[in-house]
Amino acid sequence: MSEPVGHRPQTRREKSISALKRALGTSGGSRRAVSDPGRMGYVFSAPYFFHLALFFGYPLLFALILVFHRWDIVTPMEFIGLRNISRLLQDDLFFRAIRNTGFFLVIHIPLQIIVALFFAELLNAKLKGRSFFRTVYFLPVVVSGVVVAILFQQLFAFETGYINGVISALGGDRVPWLVSPAWAMPSIALMATWKNVGFYVILFLTGLQNIPDSMYEVAYLEGATTWQRWTQVTLPLLNPMLVTVVVLSTIGGFSLFIEPYLLTGGGPLSSTLSALLYIYNQAFYFNHMGYAAALGIFFALIIFVVVLLQRRFVEEDIY
């Protein structure tokens, strides 16, 4: 985590800070000895860490122990050494699920960036009504994934769905959104993009607004075309934000679960089986708690490595 992103001057806040300083400075009250403030550090952070130990530390430890056990939740655990792990290494479906998750990211991230950049660029021009548009684009972001899934189940239905209805009314061929193995994951990526892109529009917009006008003026004076200005000024200056967006959508994409859970159950032909959905099925359909724990830890390591690599990438890029 890097240092705080520079806040733009908040004048009102600064005023109150200096007012407070003045009040404290001139009060000249009884200068009692300060009680050891270090102690209060522990007092203040104790509730958090107590909670963290109980609801994060203990479960994590338990999960690590579970990796070496067979456990169906209802009968006692049974130590089985490394068998969960050897099973994992032979579990084609799990690796399929990881590949599916990767495929989702490969479609979702570029799509999201292009669409978000496009609308952010439009909104950055000083047009009337842009706060209205910004609000509308942001709407799907705040709404629960459950609502979006129920909605898209209807919109994406092959024979009876709204989108295909419009396509056939216009004379086109219906698209097998969720029913063809080739289309299903792209459809889910499309839906996820629709839901999240408003968020990234706002991020890019913030980034664009932080680019000083003078940079563009220089480019203009040098006779750069619009396209050149965009590739030579906007993009490089937007790069840190771009990397942030990639990292954020990667983490979000790895947790793909509720969309396939509600829309496809992982089908057709396991094409939308995400890693988390597979882990969920192992744990709660088939009661392989130990195995699910092994899958979970393994997947966590993958996420950890990917995020670490991206982190390094971020730092190289910024400094």
């Binding site: 109980l54 609801f55 939740i73 947790s255 988390l276 882990i279 979970g296 966590a300």
Partner: peptide
């Protein structure tokens, strides 16, 4: 740093043990 670390572990890993707790 511990708090940062907790953010990287997917919730799914903790789900089952947390449920038993």
């Amino acid at each position: 740093n511990i708090i940062l670390f907790t953010m990287m572990v997917p919730f799914m890993v903790l789900l089952i043990p947390l449920y038993t707790l």
